[in-house]
Simulated scan of single mutants.
Amino acid sequence: MGVQQNLISLVFNASLVFITFPLVSSSIEHHSRTKDDNHIKLMVYVKMSPRLQFEITLHGFLLWASMGFLMPVGILAIRLPNRDENPRRHRIVFYVHAILQMIAVLLATGGAIMSIKNFNNLFNNSHQRLGVALYGIIWLQVLLGIFRPQRGTKRSVWFFAHWILGTTVSFLGVLNVYLGLVAYHQKTSKGTKIWNILFTLQICVIVFFYLFQEKWVYIQNQGVALANEMMTTSCQESRPNENEKALKGDTC
């Protein structure tokens, strides 16, 4: 009986240890992390070398050029209207779109390699986590582009997947540029207001052209209809004059 009581007591005490140990260690770890974070915030500007600042700036430039500029411009290029259904024009537009997207992917890959090689990727902020997701989506989009079905076949599913992935990459890429500017300010203490303003203006211009493309064909059709209407009215006005001249000629 005494042995059983001792065994139960031992198990009970061990259970308390296993229950309380994670709580204590978690509290200690949280305190340690808080202390380390405060220390990092105080020392980050001192420890950051000019080379690291240059690498961070270059990383940001590569990702802006890739996701913030070339990819949206490539989308605008493929949406250029082709009213005459000219095959040569269609091929040119397609190659422009493909080249812009390939350059964008290469720049994004270079920025990712630079991030993995030179930065401390703790994935403790939204910019880093979203960046990893974007790299995966970009290369998935590349695979979709490589295995594009031939024109004339049923490829509605492929087109929808390609469109939704491209739209997602563009939207999240623009968002991540803004998050990157926030992270850049936190790491370097440099102001980013002017860059936010310039990037916002650029996005507004791209959105304007995107919406303008939606209505461009309609505007052209309205112009053709107006021209036809004016020609019809002019013909109707000229016919009475011709009839009057004919009557005068007969009278003479």
Score class of each variant (00 low, 15 high):
74 G>Y: 05
9 S>H: 08
123 F>E: 11
47 K>Q: 13
100 L>G: 01
43 M>C: 00
212 F>M: 10
158 W>M: 04
240 P>N: 11
4 Q>Y: 15
121 N>T: 10
42 L>F: 12
56 I>M: 06
51 R>T: 09
80 L>H: 01
53 Q>K: 10
24 V>F: 03
187 K>G: 02
116 I>E: 09
142 V>D: 14
91 R>F: 14
201 L>F: 15
247 L>P: 09
226 L>I: 11
90 H>W: 04
240 P>V: 08
46 V>C: 09
161 A>Y: 15
50 P>G: 00
66 S>F: 04
41 K>G: 11
238 S>M: 14
238 S>R: 10
21 F>H: 09
15 S>A: 10
34 T>K: 06
123 F>L: 14
98 A>L: 15
248 K>E: 13
245 K>A: 10
66 S>G: 09
139 W>E: 05
136 G>W: 12
198 L>F: 13
32 S>H: 06
214 E>K: 07
105 V>T: 05
168 T>A: 07
119 F>T: 02
46 V>G: 02
152 G>D: 07
122 L>D: 07
250 D>V: 14
60 G>D: 04
182 V>T: 04
237 E>M: 14
172 L>C: 07
3 V>H: 08
11 V>D: 02
127 H>L: 02
125 N>P: 04
243 N>V: 15
58 L>F: 12
241 N>E: 14
129 R>P: 03
9 S>Y: 11
74 G>V: 01
7 L>F: 12
231 M>S: 11
11 V>N: 00
182 V>Y: 07
211 L>G: 03
100 L>P: 04
143 L>S: 04
114 M>S: 08
142 V>P: 00
219 I>S: 01
210 Y>V: 06
230 M>Q: 10
231 M>V: 08
197 I>D: 06
111 G>H: 03
206 I>S: 04
168 T>D: 06
22 P>D: 00
132 V>L: 15
61 F>N: 01
73 V>F: 10
226 L>K: 08
170 S>T: 07
133 A>D: 01
150 Q>A: 13
249 G>V: 07
220 Q>C: 09
164 I>F: 15
142 V>R: 07
30 H>I: 07
236 Q>W: 09
226 L>D: 09
178 Y>E: 12
23 L>N: 09
161 A>P: 05
24 V>T: 03
168 T>W: 04
197 I>R: 14
96 V>S: 05
106 L>P: 05
192 T>Y: 00
16 L>M: 11
226 L>C: 13
158 W>F: 12
27 S>T: 00
62 L>Q: 13
249 G>D: 12
57 T>S: 02
173 G>A: 03
158 W>Y: 15
71 M>Y: 14
8 I>E: 14
139 W>L: 06
162 H>R: 09
122 L>T: 09
191 G>E: 04
153 T>R: 02
203 I>D: 04
196 N>F: 10
154 K>Q: 03
173 G>D: 06
115 S>M: 05
250 D>W: 15
62 L>C: 12
189 S>A: 01
237 E>V: 12
200 T>F: 14
178 Y>T: 08
180 G>Q: 03
108 A>M: 11
169 V>M: 01
134 L>E: 01
95 Y>F: 15
185 H>W: 10
208 F>V: 02
247 L>D: 10
134 L>G: 03
246 A>G: 00
186 Q>M: 14
179 L>A: 10
234 S>R: 13
